[in-house]
Nucleic acid binder design. Structure first.
Lengths: 155, 155
DNA sequence: CAGCCTTTCTTGACTGATTCCAGAAAAAGG
DNA sequence: CCTTTTTCTGGAATCAGTCAAGAAAGGCTG
C-alpha cells in the first residue's frame, strides 16, 4: 500500500480529523486527476470496501473547503476533482470525448485580468477553459467533423 | 407589443419555423441577458400564457444549436442564456450574489490561446470566467469577508 | 385555400447528480 | 477511559434537465 503519511499530514495541516475515508478520497483524487464523484466513489470502495456515497460527498466538500482539492465543473460535465491547487493552472476539454488535461497559462500570474472594461466588478481570479480536440480524437479517422455531428445528434 | 419582426427574420434565417413560443423565448433572452431557464419560462408565460417547460427547453436547445443564442454554464449555477453571439466576449461572476456581466477581453481575438503547453490538444476556443465581487456587493457594508463566510456556511 | 407531411408543442413520467435528515458510530482531547 | 465533537450510514427528497408518444401547428403543394 502506498504511503498515506503525506495525506495524513495534509489533513492535520488543515485541521481535519484523519479518517480512513478521507485518506482514501485524498489518495483517489491524487491518483485519478479530474475524476468525477462516481469514479472517486468506486476508487474508494476498491480501497476500503463499502463506503456510503454520502460520506464521499461530505469528504469531497470538506477537502474542497479546506483547499486540499479543487473542484472543477466543466460545462456539460458533472463535478470533477483534482489535487493541483494554488498554482493557477487551467484546463483543456476535448469536445469529442470529454477528456480533460491541465495547461499552465502562458502568463504565469492570473491571466487576462486586464479585461477592457470590468463593469465595476472587483476581479480576483480568472478561470480559463480551452476547448478543442485531444490528441486521440484529433488524429482518429473521423476528423474535426465529429464535433458538428455530435452537436446535431443532441438537437 | 414590441415588434417581433427582427426575431422572425432571425428564425427564418436559421431555417427554423416561426412559432409563438420561439418568438417569445427569443424576446425573453434578449430582454433578460444571462437569465436561467426558469426565468425564461416565467417571462414566456407572462407573454403567452401557459407554455410547457419542455417546449422552452426544446426551443432553447434549437436556438442554441442554430447559434441564435448562447448557453453559458457558470460553475455553481444552472444554465443561462444570452443573445450576444459570435463576438468572443467573456463573463464576470459575482462570488457573493451570483450576478453576471459581460466583459470584452483585452485581446479582441480568441484570448490566451497561447497555452505554454497544449498537451497535444488542438485548441479552437478559450472561454474565460472572471470571479470577483459586483459593484453592489463590493461596496456593501459586509466587505470581502462574506465570500469566506458563504463558503463556510455551505460546509 | 384545402390537404398533407414534417416539425414542434403538450403531457406526464423519469433519470441522475447532489443534498438533506436523523440516528448510530467513531475520533480527538483530557 | 470518558466526554465532546464530528463523521458515517441509509434512505428519502430536490432539482435541472430529458424521454416518449400523441396532439397541434407551420409551411409547401396543387
Amino acid at each position: 500500500m502506498p504511503t498515506s503519511l503525506p495525506h495524513e499530514h495534509s489533513l492535520r495541516g488543515a485541521a481535519l480529523r484523519v479518517t480512513r475515508p478521507r485518506l482514501a478520497v485524498l489518495a483517489a483524487v491524487h491518483q485519478h486527476p479530474h475524476a468525477d464523484t462516481d469514479a472517486i466513489i468506486r476508487a474508494v470502495r476498491t480501497d476500503l470496501g463499502e463506503v456510503s456515497h454520502q460520506a464521499v460527498y461530505d469528504v469531497l466538500r470538506a477537502l474542497t473547503t479546506a483547499g486540499l482539492v479543487r473542484r472543477i465543473e466543466p460545462p456539460g460535465s458533472v463535478a470533477r476533482y483534482e489535487s493541483r491547487v494554488g498554482d493557477n493552472h487551467h484546463h483543456v476539454v476535448c469536445r469529442s470525448c470529454g477528456a480533460i488535461a491541465d495547461v499552465d497559462c502562458a502568463v504565469q500570474e492570473t491571466p487576462c485580468l486586464t479585461a477592457s472594461d470590468n463593469q465595476g466588478f472587483v476581479i480576483d481570479e480568472a478561470e480559463v477553459t480551452y476547448w478543442g480536440l485531444c490528441p486521440t480524437c484529433s488524429t482518429s479517422s473521423e476528423h474535426p467533423l465529429k464535433r458538428q455531428a455530435r452537436k446535431d445528434s443532441r438537437a
